[in-house]
Every structure is written in structure tokens, then in C-alpha cells.
Design a protein around this nucleic acid. Structure first.
Lengths: 152, 152
DNA sequence: CACTCTCCGTGGACGCCATCGACCTGAGCC
DNA sequence: GGCTCAGGTCGATGGCGTCCACGGAGAGTG
């Protein structure tokens, strides 16, 4: 993981469809060298994949909500995680410090679907309570921040 | 935006580096047809870009936090948004229903940097108070969910 | 110091891919 | 019917991805 790898990662975070030839020009190496480096970044797990960034409304997912989950005392977090993972509406899942063990970001088409999701969550074994906050609008999301060398 | 466009979007959300030839095979069209459709999806804003999905720890961003912001009464939300947009650590920004007008997802390298960020936020004009929750671990994030209209 | 091992990059080759232009076809409309 | 337009296929061509053999720098060792 040297400076060249960092710029490759940075370039690909900005535009994942750049050709190897273009990446090579940007970092001053040959295309095969870049190909090999990117391959290693992928197989070492630094680069987990490449995703199109899609306007959610355009694919019928206009409602975004953040849901905090309080666990039952004595519940098994791993079991609960498996129950959560099955729900496709949950786009992100963080294990948090604080009263609410999990914080979910969910995306659904309608408020009715959100209601159904919340009901399902409250029925999930191990869930003591939920707290839902609705995002009225997304100002921006998953903005890539420029990489820097590790802070001193 | 027909069924073929939806599958293209779906395929690209799963792997943004698929070639047009491969996309064409998957949806049963020719490569130029797919090329034109994807171009239209991009210029109409349905597809906003393509991003490499990178392990944050690998680029020195090991600390994730969610920060709620309560606005001063009478503050101008637009002005505040501009102040927030300048801070590169803020990866996502949602305008919320509830007491906390904004919910930020921030990513920094160390707790010390998080502290600095919070201080800066509290000094920002229009910010009455902040509430920070730290993510101990990310179970998953930005998982693409299959597109809306039930397919065959 | 020379020897060699390894890592990492370069250059060349070859087939596939992106992309452009020309042409085709069906739907909607005078 | 005949026009027009959107959106597709086909064919050509230059560039790209990817495989392979080769070479040079640096570390460790006699």
C-alpha cells in the first residue's frame, strides 16, 4: 500500500469505470502494472467492489429512514444480525456505542412500506424497541473524501 | 425507464466495471444499444457515477460517527448546509424530521480528529448543539437492494 | 564484492471491446 | 399510403485488456 496504490484507490473512488490505460497515464505506470496493482487491491480486500451510484427515487426508493434499535437484555447480537441481514430494505447496519445497539439505514418506496418494516423489526426476537427518524431529503451521500497519508 | 433499463441499473449497481459487451449479453441487446441506454441513464441523472467500494480502514479512516445537529431557532439552513459541505469528513448529510435538523455521517482517522470535527461543528453559525454517536463496527454499508417492480 | 533470488515494472502481441456511421424496422400521425 | 422518429442491428476500426517473456534494483549471503 504505497502512494501509487493510494492514488489508484482515489481515482477509482471518483470514477470506477476508468480504463486501466487511463489509470496508468494518471499514475505514471504502464497498463499491465496498474492491472496487477488493482488486482492485488481487490484480492486483499482493500477494494471490495465497484458500484454504480444511482438516484434512489429513480428506482422507486424514495423514502429514507434511520432506525435505532434497542436490544433486549440478554439477547444474542449475532442472531439478531442474521435476522436484520435478511431484510433487503436495510442498506446499512452499524453496531453502535450507546443505548441503541444498532443503527440501520433503510430505503423503501413508500411510508406504508416503512411502517411494515418497523413492525417486522419490532417483532424480531431480541429487539426491545426501535426509534425511527425519517430523512426528508438527502443533501449528499457517500461523498468520497480525498485520501491522505496517515495522520502523525 | 423500462424493464431493460432497470436490469442495466441493477447490473451496474452490482458491478460497475462490467463491459458494455457483457451488459449486452445479460440483457439480450447489442453492445451499441446498451451503450446508448447507459449514456441516457447517465445524462438523465439516474446513474450519478461509478464508485469503487473501498475498505475505509485501509485508507486511514477507521472511525465512523453519526452526528445529529440541532439548529438555532431562526438559523438559515442553506447557509449552514454550505458550511457543512466544506467539511470533507462529512460523507453523508440528511435533512431530517425531528428536533435534530441534520444527521451527518462522518468518517475520520482517529478519535482526536473526531473531537476536532465536533468542536468545529459546534462553532459553526446556526448550530445550537450536536449529538454524536460512534459506530463501533460497520456490519454492512450501501448494500444494493434489488430493484422495485417484481421481475419474472 | 559478486552472486543470486525476488519483486516489480516494461514492451510486444493478439484478440476482444468501445464506438461510430450506415442501414433497418415498427409505431404514430397526417 | 407515406413521413418521421425512436431505437434497434450490423460492420468496421482503433484502442484497450491481458498474457507472457524479459530486465533492472535492492536485500541477503558466501
Amino acid at each position: 500500500m504505497d502512494a501509487i496504490d493510494l492514488s489508484l484507490v482515489d481515482l477509482l473512488r471518483g470514477n470506477a469505470r476508468l480504463s486501466y490505460a487511463e489509470l496508468a497515464r494518471q499514475v505514471g505506470l504502464s497498463a499491465p502494472a496498474v492491472h496487477e496493482r488493482v488486482g492485488k487491491l481487490e484480492s486483499s480486500g482493500v477494494v471490495r467492489g465497484y458500484r454504480a451510484d444511482v438516484e434512489p427515487e429513480a428506482i422507486g426508493l424514495g423514502v429514507t429512514a434511520l432506525i435505532g434499535i434497542v436490544e433486549d437484555s440478554g439477547a444474542d447480537s449475532d442472531d439478531m444480525l442474521e435476522s436484520l441481514r435478511v431484510l433487503p430494505e436495510i442498506e446499512s447496519c452499524y453496531f453502535m456505542a450507546g443505548v441503541e445497539s444498532f443503527l440501520l439505514k433503510a430505503r423503501v418506496g413508500t411510508i406504508a412500506e416503512l411502517e411494515q418494516l418497523i413492525v417486522r423489526l419490532n417483532r424480531t426476537p431480541g429487539v426491545a424497541s426501535t426509534r425511527t427518524a425519517i430523512a426528508l431529503s438527502t443533501k449528499w451521500e457517500n461523498r468520497p473524501q480525498p485520501v491522505g497519508p496517515p495522520a502523525p
